[in-house]
């Protein structure tokens, strides 16, 4: 999910289990199947703000690339 657009929604397909960040991602609610919305990209291009499970989370693109996602059409959300 390193290349996301502001306003898009997506579903998490998988998280690279070999990276040490994998566990923390899941603990923060980014579990497989979770749907989130990209609210904002920071003014300097990184990090990004997403909304999931009723709260808002900031993460860096460099770390977000370990999360594989599927972009959703507006109708799926």
């Amino acid at each position: 999910m390193a290349d996301v657009r502001q306003g898009m929604s997506a579903r998490i397909l998988a998280i690279d289990p070999t990276v040490p960040e994998a566990r923390r991602f899941q603990e923060m609610g980014l579990t497989v199947g979770t749907v989130f919305r990209v609210l904002k990209v920071a003014p300097l291009g990184d990090p990004i703000e997403i909304e999931l499970r009723g709260f808002r989370l900031v993460m860096r693109k460099g770390e977000a690339r370990f999360v594989r996602i599927q972009a959703l059409e507006a109708a799926d959300v």
Partner: peptide, 11 residues
């Protein structure tokens, strides 16, 4: 110690 992933909540 390794750096933690930068994950921060926007309350």
């Amino acid at each position: 110690g390794r750096s933690l992933p930068f994950m921060m909540e926007l309350p």
